[in-house]
Design a protein around this nucleic acid. Structure first.
Lengths: 139, 139
DNA sequence: GTTGACCCTGTAGTCTACTCCGGGATTATG
DNA sequence: CATAATCCCGGAGTAGACTACAGGGTCAAC
């Protein structure tokens, strides 16, 4: 397969020229060789690299974490390290899910108590928001 | 009750001086009267206002949305509008929870397939990220 | 009365992941 | 050959919610 210009790489991988240059600055995509005109010339493997980044993003990894994963891959490190990152990310997600579910439950409860019409200032939701939120903040 | 300087308000409400001034710029906290020295002098009700903001934040509302909620309260609008915002926020949360749960499920599946030790380049997790088709997400 | 805590304004920096812009060189298309 | 598309670089702007100065005035405690 021929080398790809950044534009063709972007199109092939479903990414964007500016995004690829940004990933290069961030160290996620290695600097490719340049043609005589100074254009970046990517090997076909760059497509896989971008797809890796995209998929890791859909799994909740940050670019910094993806850079770590790519380093583990490039260094062919022990898969235990990869598994550890996966476990950590699951724990992060569990925490965030639990937080969101708690919020959601409170909102559902408040909504249930607010029926019909009437002034907002006697709306149970507004009233709840005006209660003392922090049971422990002293003074 | 005496008026509060911004520092005492911050302490009482469990907030921060800079944060309160920021909320003022954002229109969440009304500009209070000033003393002869130019100091902000807050009525006791400002504490409730800050607590409202804090509590709404813990329920997932953005500052822009909280500003809307406060406007509904201040204008004593119909509680139907408050309920609508609460419903919308629940829908947002449901969407985010679903996204996170999907990510979490994929990670759990991948982790299960990666056992013991060995080179990362043959790690099922890394391999999945390198697949042409996404591990669980449609193309 | 002097030190240190507190207050003022306005601006700038932080984090994440881009996205856009200007100005200029090169290549592809008709 | 003219024009459009693409490429280069460096830097600035975006959103959200703060957080941190700089530089200067004021107030409370010892």
């Amino acid at each position: 397969m021929q080398d790809l210009t950044i534009g063709r790489l972007a199109k092939t991988a479903g990414s964007d020229v500016e995004t690829i240059r940004y990933y290069e600055r961030r160290g996620l995509v290695p600097e490719p060789p340049r043609g005589r005109n100074g254009y970046r010339l990517y090997p076909a493997s760059a497509v896989a690299r971008l797809r890796f980044i995209q998929r890791a993003k859909t799994l909740g990894f940050s670019l910094a974490e993806i850079a770590d994963l790519l380093r583990l891959q490039d260094a062919n490190a022990d898969r235990g390290e990869v598994r550890a990152m996966t476990r950590q990310k699951q724990a992060d997600l569990d925490q965030r899910i639990a937080d969101l579910q708690r919020m959601r439950a409170v909102l559902a409860d408040l909504e249930e108590r607010c029926t019909g019409h009437g002034p907002a200032q006697s709306c149970p939701i507004i009233e709840a928001l005006n209660q003392h939120a922090s049971p422990e903040v002293a003074e």
